[in-house]
Design a protein around this nucleic acid. Structure first.
Length: 754
DNA sequence: CTCCTACGCCTTTTT
DNA sequence: GGCGTAGGAG
């Protein structure tokens, strides 16, 4: 049986139990820095050592990087058997299954993947085709609505029949969303395309509609299922997992690993309830809590504990550190975002000399990517090497998407978004009005645009246009013909040359143009590397050095997956992007009201709790040094805004801070003195008038008038300053005693006059 | 058809 | 402050 189980020696008791309890449902609650990855990898290694064939093990993660790291570490224990393991992201594993089974749900196996840009572009097209107003039907809103529907297993048909959803749409003046959803689904299918949600949703549909041939097969195959970052799964992901695991007589060998306190993806449909309710769903569940923190020193851990205790819903646990007391948390109080950046740069220099830190030991975290700019400037000034994560990724750049679009067309010419992107780029005199006519024809015949283009001779169009189109069709066809002859790299070179794409960018002699050519070269190199790497991807797709394989890789690639290159640089990234990482020294900047916690979150139910978890993630990235900062003024949208310190600063415990937190005393807002926080001379004064929650009865809208004193469940007492908006949608500006001015929709917010 | 300018929305966070 | 889109002129 077990061959070499020395890997068990380095584990603490709870970790060891979590690793060796292999049968039946297991939940591992893993606090930050508690050795979660070790448990996960050793658990899989242990399964294999116990004789479970690796191909019967399915391990789902959220990033490719996490999966790769896991596989690598498992290989170190069990050797190359680990190649047969099914370990990958939800999206990539399901994409792989879908490639095999696509025909069963009416998709081609060479389907292309739409990223959110593609999805939104198609939705915009549909909105315009339906002659709807693009302002009321703003793409992001519509896209989110459709995405949420899929995440909740609601098909376009079910959406159309759902009275609740339709009522919501009508009250937001967007009654046609159901029709847009339907058209979108049809168009995706016609284009042979799946968006990110489809990779999950269609997998669910596939399993659901083919219980005998497909579901049984995968149930039988995956005898052991592990899910990483379980707190970030959405309803759809969990439903698929349950389908695979929960059937009569199933041994339910499901192991979920996560930390409810680090659930930070609600905005993309993740629901913390999956982890909170897991115990109720699996009666004989074994729960292991990893509470020992091996990462951070004690002041940091204590601050994190105090902070998170303010949240309502959570699984009780107490993280403790074995790393000694360490340094207290430093706080930088800056007058402006510029000063904030300047002082952080200075502290970084100081830490480098006094504490002998390298650049790469240090990270600056912020709530929004837009905050990075000022830091870049000041680090540059101090000659500190840095690297910014996030923002627009390499694969989102125009020139890269252009070349990839040609490659996508070679694989699947029905891909409407790829086609629209490049049919007239480089310029071929196929303008918008011509394309609109072709598109109308395609819709009328329920065909893809490509179907029309390749038979363009049959239709009534000016000869000049027909010639231009034929030329374009020939380019795509000649690439198609070479699909099985050339490898992905050779095809990409062909796509760059034959289409005139690279030549077009080369004509542009501006710096930007030169960068683009450079990026295209980098892309080609990347493809070459992909083709030449001898890494076997997976048993099931081992031949997938093909273009299809490459494209799938690229579409599911994220910025998170980048290897930390060994260059010695300070890293800058959003707090979201920092999850799972750790640094000797961490700066969390911009701790201001309406920024962190973000304004949007404050207005949402349970939004603050999620922001608090986000801040929890931020501070627990630090091993030895943590520095928080806020600025009293900051440029946002190009103009200066005054802001005041975040409430979160009070919530981490003053005793964990290097200096007293007497920051809240004076009014911080010159223009509008009532806007700032007025927490009194010390932070201990938190005289929130207690509102009787149980007996809270909101007043009818008719009683809400300007000048009235009102109570709000979360914001406390306030004064109505203005009332505007149509009947039924009145928006009140309320000046709250504690949290300042808020704009509130009365029908949702529930105000009580007193 | 293509190029240029004006304006409007925007910023949470991302697989 | 920046991007993408609409709308007009060449």
């Amino acid at each position: 049986m077990a061959t070499d189980s020395s890997y068990l020696d380095g584990l603490n008791d709870v970790q060891r139990k979590a690793v060796t309890t292999i049968n039946g449902p297991v939940m591992v609650i893993a606090g930050p820095g508690s050795g979660k990855t070790r448990v996960l990898t050793y658990r899989i290694a242990h399964l294999i050592n116990e004789g479970i064939p690796p191909y019967q093990i399915l391990a789902l993660t959220f990033t490719n990087k996490a999966a790769a790291e896991m596989k690598e570490r498992i290989a170190a224990v069990v050797g190359k058997k680990s190649n047969q393991l099914w370990a990958g992201t939800f999206h990539s594993i399901f994409a792989r299954i879908l490639r095999y089974e696509a025909e069963k749900i009416g998709y081609p196996s060479n389907f292309t993947i739409y990223d959110s840009q593609d999805s939104k572009s198609l939705i915009t097209t549909i909105i315009k085709e339906m002659n709807l107003d693009v302002k009321t039907y703003n793409v992001n809103g519509v896209f989110n609505r459709i995405s949420n529907a899929k995440t909740n297993l609601i098909s376009s048909k079910m959406y159309a029949d759902n009275i609740g959803l339709r009522t919501q749409d009508r009250s937001s003046h967007r009654p046609k969303i159901a029709d847009i959803y339907r058209a979108y689904a049809i168009r995706c299918k016609r284009a042979g395309a799946m968006d990110f949600d489809d990779l999950l949703y269609q997998t669910y549909v596939l399993l659901h509609k083919n219980p005998d041939q497909v579901l049984e097969k995968y149930r039988d195959k995956f005898k052991y299922v592990l899910v990483d970052e379980f707190q970030d799964t959405n309803h759809l992901q969990y439903s698929i997992i349950k389908k695979l695991v929960a059937f009569p007589n199933s041994p339910r060998n499901l192991c979920v690993v996560g930390d409810d306190a680090q659930s930070i993806y609600a905005f993309r449909g993740a629901t913390i309830d999956n982890i909170l309710n897991f115990q109720k769903e699996y009666k004989n569940l074994k729960v292991y809590k990893l509470e020992q923190n091996y990462r951070s020193t004690n002041f940091i851990v204590e601050a994190a504990n105090q902070l998170i205790s303010k949240n309502n819903k959570q699984i009780q646990k107490k993280i403790w550190s074995s790393q000694g007391e360490g340094a207290k948390i430093k706080l930088i109080k800056a007058v402006s975002d510029v000063e904030e950046a300047k002082r952080i740069a200075e502290v970084i220099l100081e830490q480098k000399t006094r504490n002998h830190l390298n650049n790469s030991d240090i990270a600056i975290l912020y709530r929004t990517n837009a905050q990075s700019r000022v830091f870049e400037e000041h680090l540059r000034r101090h000659n500190i090497q840095y690297k910014v994560y996030g923002g627009l990724s390499f694969y989102q750049r125009k020139e890269i998407k252009d070349l990839l679009a040609y490659l996508k067309l070679a694989v699947n010419p029905k891909d409407e978004e790829a086609l629209k992107r490049v049919i007239n780029f480089p310029k071929r005199a196929i303008g918008n009005s011509s394309l609109d006519k072709i598109k109308a024809l395609a819709n009328q015949q329920s065909q893809s645009i490509w179907d029309i283009l390749k038979d363009i001779g049959k239709y009534q169009f000016p000869n000049r246009l027909k010639t231009a189109i034929t030329k374009f069709v020939n380019i795509v066809v000649s690439m198609q013909k070479n699909l099985n002859v050339l490898d992905a790299y050779q095809l990409a070179v062909m796509a760059g040359d034959k289409t005139g794409l690279i030549a077009t960018y080369q004509k542009d002699k501006t710096i930007e143009g030169m960068n683009r050519v450079e990026n295209l070269r980098e892309l080609l190199n990347g493809i070459k590397e992909f083709v030449e790497s001898d890494e076997v991807i997976e048993e099931i797709n081992s031949d997938d050095k093909s273009l299809t394989g490459y494209l799938q890789n690229v579409m599911l690639y994220t910025d998170q997956d980048k290897d930390n290159d060994d260059a010695d640089r300070v890293l800058m990234m959003s707090v979201h992007a920092s999850k799972g990482l750790e640094f000797e020294s961490v700066f969390v900047a911009g701790l201001e009201k309406d920024l962190f916690p973000s304004k949007m979150a404050v207005e949402q139910r349970e939004g603050i709790d999620e922001e608090r978890r986000l801040f929890y993630v931020a501070i627990t990235r630090a091993k030895r040094f943590l520095c928080l900062s806020f600025a009293r003024t900051r440029y946002r949208f190009g103009n200066m805004v005054t802001s005041s310190p975040s409430n979160f600063l009070e919530e981490i415990g003053e005793e964990n801070l290097e200096h007293a937190l007497n920051i809240m005393s004076r009014s911080t807002d010159g223009r509008n003195e009532s806007k700032g926080p007025r927490l009194g001379p010390t932070l201990k004064q938190r005289a929130r008038p207690r509102i009787d929650v149980d007996n809270f009865e909101p007043s009818p809208i008719s009683e809400i008038k300007i000048g009235k004193q009102v109570e709000h469940l979360r914001f406390g007492r306030g004064l109505i300053k203005t009332l505007e908006g149509a009947k039924g949608n009145e928006v009140a500006t309320v000046l709250f005693e504690e949290v300042g001015e808020k704009r509130i929709m009365i029908k949702y917010a529930k105000l009580k006059v007193f």
